[in-house]
Amino acid sequence: MADISKDILEKIKKEKMRPYPKQYFLLKRSVVWAVFGLSIFLGSIACAITLFQLRYAQWDLYKHLTHSLTEFVLLVIPFFWLTFLLGFTWLAYYYFRRTERGYQYTAIWIVLSSIALSIIGGGLLYSTGLSEKLEFVFQENLPFYKKLQESKQKVWMSPEHGLLAGKIIKIISDQKVELKDLKGSIWIIDIADTIWRGRLRPVKDLKIKILGKMQAQNQFKADEIRPWKRRRGSGKKHYFRCIEKK
């Protein structure tokens, strides 16, 4: 009977085969760990922006939408970033399983640990203010992202529930302004007893959000006026300090 091992050894010698160098395996392992680490880091960024968006989601508005809290919650949840978080968690799982001993852990353990690490990382990034900066950068540079975020503002087109948004097109008097809402309808807004948030003042072309009461068709009494959106770098203290002209 032929000696298989001997034949293989001869083949190895004849073809001058050599074991792959140690560095090759070291590099391979390093790449796996690096991609795992990167996945956790990117997951942390997604988490940080999620925290930021949830923190400033103006939860007080749900009182005005009691007929559909679910709709409000669905509008507030940052699905865009949660999808990223899930994607990076899957990537982290995939690469962790490819580490030397990664297979010893169950899928659920790896996934939950990755999410926990991303949340911790996200919390740290959020506390440094990076999430706010990134949110601004994305909104300024990615038109689709800006559009996506603005679509969330449709909650403000609910005058029968006391919410209205649009642009001031005319200052009628100290107590009345004319507003073009997001759908293009014209409203007369009573601003006599209004609280202006974020140091806003009635200015033509100013885009605003209004909390108040619909008095009649195309007539609205404003109790509180908020800026359309926050500005970058203003920080938590200056969250509402913005006058946006469009």
Binding site: I4, S5, I8, K11, I12, P19, Y20, P21, E100
Partner: peptide
């Protein structure tokens, strides 16, 4: 089976440095 085992042993040899 011998062909398969040849493949196996060659892979083992090439990856000896990767053995933990």
């Amino acid at each position: 089976a011998k062909d398969i085992i040849q493949e196996i042993f060659i892979k083992v040899y090439r990856n000896l440095n990767g053995f933990n």
